[in-house]
Design a protein around this nucleic acid. Structure first.
Lengths: 227, 227
DNA sequence: ACAAAAGTGTTCTCGATACACCCATGC
DNA sequence: GCATGGGTGTATCGAGAACACTTTTGT
């Protein structure tokens, strides 16, 4: 490469900095993760997390959201910083430090052929992940752990759902994340005692059964902590 | 600056990456933080967290420990990653992304005139912090919040103490972090019910009072989570 | 009528809290 | 003998867990 192709020079070595985002959703009663197929080496054609290099004038969070939009067409997800991965050898090209983000969205929000300007994208069940580029398997494992932990003391589950919802749907999401069945009466008692949801006054009649009451968040769009 | 002084060139802009470490200890029955006085602009002569640029061949954690050792002579602390701060304007010189670490050490472990190869260092009570460089005030506030949170479901408090210890000393550390007095009987019941500590069989006779039983961790040096 | 999910209360256990007095020592 | 922190038990309360039957609808 010629010197003119390397115009950004510094007095000491600088690593590259990327963001990588683990976007979870619930599909077919399972947790799924969004992956993109890499279009260039290293790991060409393998699956990886959506992400890329941070631009000079954007924050890390803006970078994560921009990459997600560019590569997958997805906007408006819940996003929080997860962990920063910086082992010197995690990328064979050069030193790359990745600030990993953790994102949640209801599957209803995700356009099926989501704007893929750039890449082939795919949803993979967490239990059926393909071989992944870099240390992205570790990143997903950590994100999954974080999701399970936050379920117990925050309103993260609502970020995987659309309003209004039934208590049965909410319980289902909790069961999927926790990986175990919950008692219906105890679950309802617990959720209602938190005082975070309220009845809309409507019901949803879906199929061959008793219609269920619909609820909404009292403070939609806000992640709340309790306990 | 001449081109020869800028030998590290890249095809697109790279940010600088630093680590900054919030090292807590307990001094005079208060939480204190280690700061170093800056020796160069920006914020020359102001107080800042110990830290610096990550070297190409070290992990982020190794970098944090190296900077702590170089600037303050301190080794062997408990260390965990806290958060990554990357606002584009947080450093006036260039884009600098800081991976912040959270560290704990018992004050007994800290040599008084700790090897200061490089910098003037000082311990500041958390309640009496000076004006700080960059966004280091925010970093300390987040670290304090993390410390308080982890106290409730992990063994972090032991990282601020030396073994063996009395239950009175352990309670004091908890009270300092929580900022409130605790009931002695309930505290002891709670700690002993966790099954993390055991009696050494010795007592400590200190001053004009009843000697206290000494305890040790059953698994020293290991951070454990409970609940 | 029946299949399928909605909706509803009580009991028990256990951990968290509140609370007060005697003990062993050094001075 | 007294000042100082060490050490101990009980009663109460509330959250979480276990547990089964009736209701409403569409077919």
């Amino acid at each position: 490469m010629r010197a003119a192709d390397m115009p950004y020079c510094y007095p000491y070595p600088h690593p590259a900095v990327t963001t990588d985002t683990v976007l979870f959703t619930v599909r077919d009663d399972r947790l799924a993760v969004l992956l993109v197929r890499r279009g260039a080496p290293p790991f060409e054609n393998e699956w990886a997390l959506p992400g890329g290099f941070v631009e000079p004038d954007e924050s890390l969070e803006e970078g994560a959201l921009r990459e997600l939009a560019e590569e997958t067409g997805i906007h408006g997800v819940y996003l929080e910083q997860l962990y920063t991965f910086g082992q010197p050898d995690r990328d064979p090209r050069e030193r790359v430090i990745s600030v990993a983000y953790f994102a949640l969205a209801p599957s209803e929000m995700l356009a099926p052929a989501a704007g893929s300007d750039a890449r082939e994208t795919g949803w993979f069940l967490l239990s059926e992940l393909p071989s992944l580029a870099f240390d992205h398997g570790d990143i997903i494992a950590l994100a999954h752990q974080r999701l399970r932990a936050k379920l117990e003391y925050s309103t993260v589950a609502f970020s995987l759902m659309t309003e209004p919802f039934t208590l049965g749907e909410l319980q289902k999401v909790h069961e999927i994340i926790r990986g175990e069945a919950l008692d219906k009466r105890n679950f309802r008692k617990h959720i209602l005692s938190l005082g975070l949801v309220e009845e809309t006054g409507h019901v949803r009649s879906s199929g061959q059964r008793k219609p269920a009451r619909l609820y909404r968040l009292q403070q939609p769009g806000t992640l709340q902590y309790y306990r």
